[in-house]
Nucleic acid binder design. Structure first.
Length: 275
DNA sequence: AGCTCAACCTGCTGGC
DNA sequence: TGCCAGCAGGTTGAGC
């Protein structure tokens, strides 16, 4: 479920429900996530008040009085604010119980998610935490531009799609939006990243921004009331131009779209429009 | 240093 | 209907 737009939408949705609330307790039903939740986390967090919520890459940072909670939704994770008394469903692994009778409930069937405590503020954790310190720029920040991609790609030979999905290069571009952006930029996903010029990278950056921005708006529509329900995965698929559409005609030229595995991930492209 | 691959999990779909 | 293979929106870390 979560690509960057959904993480951003989740952030915007839960922010007003959490900021300023005290955490009564952290209930861990299932600690076995991508990294196990350390047993002492619950005791450390209880009684602290939520300051601010922010996002770095696809990590959500919950600022508390004496540190931060770092939360990642992995491949299948989602967050909802529910009544603290409402019965948990299968795969509801963690509750962050708030002083107002609600709780932030973390649901994650595949358990690729992550919940860690750091004694650093969200700002410091973003700079120093091992999971965050080596991340590239945010795709919507000015630091992400054509020159950035051009410079980093000169010594590398990987396919541009793998390059674009490398979090050390730029964060937050998952498989769906890598495919969509390369289609709109007319770049073949398997093209070696060092064989793309500055101007094409400039175009690619513009397109990435536009796609993410648009889907944040859409994600908002789709998931706006995720507090009540989990959102609607089918809705997204409608606006996708190539992802999941192997064999269907290209919206530009009608040529059947192709599918190919690049860097272990399914890739979709138009063999005529993209080079 | 850069690249590829396996691994962490459950759930769903499509073929037989 | 049931079984099984294959695939899924992410990320890390080992080994070449």
């Amino acid at each position: 479920m979560p690509e960057l737009p959904e993480v951003e939408t989740t952030l915007r949705g839960i922010r007003p429900r959490l900021e300023g609330r005290r955490i009564d307790r952290l209930l861990v039903r299932e600690p076995r996530l991508r990294q196990p939740i350390p047993p002492e986390t619950a005791a450390l967090v209880a009684g602290q008040t939520v300051g601010s919520l922010s996002r770095r890459s696809k990590y959500l940072l919950i600022g508390l009085d004496r540190g931060s909670l770092i939360l990642h939704l992995g491949m299948s994770g989602s967050l909802r604010v529910v009544d603290a008394e409402s019965p948990p469903k299968r795969h509801d692994h963690v509750d962050l119980a708030l002083s107002d009778g609600h709780c932030l409930r973390f649901h994650d069937p595949r358990r690729f998610g992550l919940l860690l405590w750091s004694e650093d503020s969200p700002e410091l954790a973003g700079l120093r935490h091992p999971l965050l310190s080596r991340l590239g720029p945010e795709p919507l920040d000015a630091a992400f531009d054509g020159g950035h991609l051009y410079r980093l790609s000169r010594q590398r030979r990987v396919a541009v799609k793998s390059f674009l999905m490398d979090a050390a290069v730029v964060v937050g571009i998952g498989n769906i939006y890598a495919n969509e952006s390369l289609f709109l930029a007319r770049i073949h996903p398997a093209r070696a990243c060092h064989r793309i010029g500055l101007d094409r990278y400039g175009r690619l950056v513009e397109v990435v921004r536009a796609v993410l921005q648009a889907s944040i708006t859409q994600g908002g529509t789709t998931l706006r009331d995720f507090v009540k329900d989990d959102g609607n995965p089918g809705y997204f698929a409608q606006s996708l131009r190539v992802y999941g559409r192997a064999g269907e005609p290209c919206v530009q030229c009608g040529t059947p779209l192709r599918q190919q595995r690049i860097g272990q991930r399914s890739s979709f492209y138009c063999p005529r429009c993209q080079h």
